[in-house]
Design a protein around this nucleic acid. Structure first.
Lengths: 103, 103
DNA sequence: TTGATAGGCAAGTCGTAACTTGCCTATCGT
DNA sequence: ACGATAGGCAAGTTACGACTTGCCTATCAA
């Protein structure tokens, strides 16, 4: 009877890190960026001075959580945002008696 | 120009731990539980064998994130769920052009 | 008032996540 | 073919989060 939230585990762990959330912000703004593009934009726009490998490992976490979909093309690897796992978790603790949605 | 997601930091960190998510599940099912009630129900319903202090610290994290609202009454301390911080973060990476597309 | 209940505070241990460093492979341009 | 670009793999270090242990305070019931 208890719903299995197994897949939500990776999603929440992926969202726990602020750098990964910045990466998702970047991909929301422009989809299909490469690793180096993301590195550059994190430095210039968010002031984050991280090594390339750090970003690569963060992207791996986001991929394993299903939040980022990699797409290889030659020597490039483009990263597409995938918000589907998010929609599964947002309604978890929202009560049916609480219609507090206001746009 | 960039929106400040400072308060979201605590929310995501609070949601990162599976035990804390179980606590939120419990409070969703029955609001206003005490620390000992939560301890007992986590053991019986979820099979989690944690000390009272562990749960207490988890509740402190949830409180500082604004997800749980404590309410003192005598020697009891009831915990109420507060989903307002959740509604602020769910729309962060949802694109305006993608209102629930289905591939 | 005494004992039991409900909870808090402060250290200390331990595992894991984040980040770095160094080296390696693959693809493209010329 | 060669060097430059884009990325991956595998260590090692470090810092933080989760959990425990021990003791303390506050409230209620007898």
């Amino acid at each position: 009877m208890p719903i299995v939230w197994g897949m939500a585990d990776d999603v929440f762990k992926a969202l726990a890190d602020p750098t990964r959330r910045h990466i998702l912000d970047e991909l929301t703004e422009r989809d299909g960026q490469t690793l180096f593009e993301i590195c550059a934009r994190l430095v210039t726009k968010h002031g984050l001075g991280l090594s390339r490998q750090a970003i690569s490992q963060h992207l791996a976490v986001l991929e394993s959580a299903g939040l980022v979909h990699p797409r290889r093309q030659g020597r490039y690897k483009f990263h597409d945002l995938n918000t589907e796992p998010l929609e599964c978790i947002v309604t978890r603790w929202l009560r049916p008696d609480a219609p507090g949605e206001h746009p």
